[in-house]
Computed example of a mutant assay.
Amino acid sequence: MAENRASEYTEGTPCWVDAQLPDLEAGKRFYGELFGWTFEDQPTGTVRASKDGDPVASLARKTDGRLPTVWTVSFFTPDADALCARIRAAGGQVVAPPAPFGDLGRTALVTDPEGAVFSLWQPGATAGFGRRHEPGAFAWVQLYTRDTDTANAFYGDLFHDALFGEGADPDFGRAPVSEVFAPEMPPHLLVHFAVRELEPALERVTRLGGRTQVPPFDTSYGTAAVVTDNQGASFALLRR
Rank of each mutant, 00 (worst) to 15 (best):
S74N: 13
L83I: 14
I87H: 04
V47T: 06
L24S: 03
A60W: 06
P43A: 02
P22R: 12
R86H: 09
P97D: 07
A96Q: 06
D54C: 00
F76R: 04
P22F: 09
Q42S: 12
R86N: 11
G53A: 05
G32Y: 03
V94E: 09
P22C: 12
S58D: 03
F35D: 03
D41V: 04
T38A: 08
F75V: 08
F101L: 13
A80Y: 00
C84A: 01
G36L: 02
F75R: 06
A57N: 04
K62N: 15
P78M: 11
S58K: 00
A99M: 15
V56W: 01
G32E: 10
K51C: 10
A57L: 08
F75S: 09
E25G: 05
T69L: 06
T72Y: 06
A60S: 10
G36I: 02
F30L: 04
V70C: 01
T69Q: 11
T44H: 10
Y31G: 04
W71T: 01
Q42N: 05
S58A: 13
G102N: 02
F75K: 11
G45N: 00
G36Y: 03
V47F: 03
T38S: 15
P68H: 09
E40Y: 00
K62H: 04
G36H: 09
D41I: 02
K51P: 05
T77C: 09
L67E: 15
A80L: 00
D64V: 00
L34T: 05
T38K: 02
G91T: 05
G36W: 04
P78Q: 14
A80M: 03
G92H: 10
G45K: 06
T69F: 10
A90R: 03
G92V: 11
E25D: 14
P68Y: 00
D52M: 10
T46I: 02
T72S: 12
P22N: 05
V95R: 12
S50Y: 07
T69I: 14
G45M: 01
I87S: 01
E25M: 07
P55T: 14
L34N: 05
T77M: 07
F35H: 08
W71D: 02
F101A: 13
V95C: 06
A90S: 12
G27F: 09
T72F: 11
K51Y: 13
P78G: 13
C84D: 05
A89E: 10
K28V: 05
Q42L: 09
Q42K: 03
K28H: 06
A80R: 08
F30M: 08
G92K: 04
R29Y: 01
L59W: 02
P100K: 14
R29Q: 08
V95N: 04
T38I: 02
R66A: 15
Q42T: 13
D54Y: 10
T77V: 03
D23Q: 04
R61S: 14
P68C: 12
F35C: 04
D54P: 02
K28M: 11
F76L: 02
K51Q: 03
S74M: 13
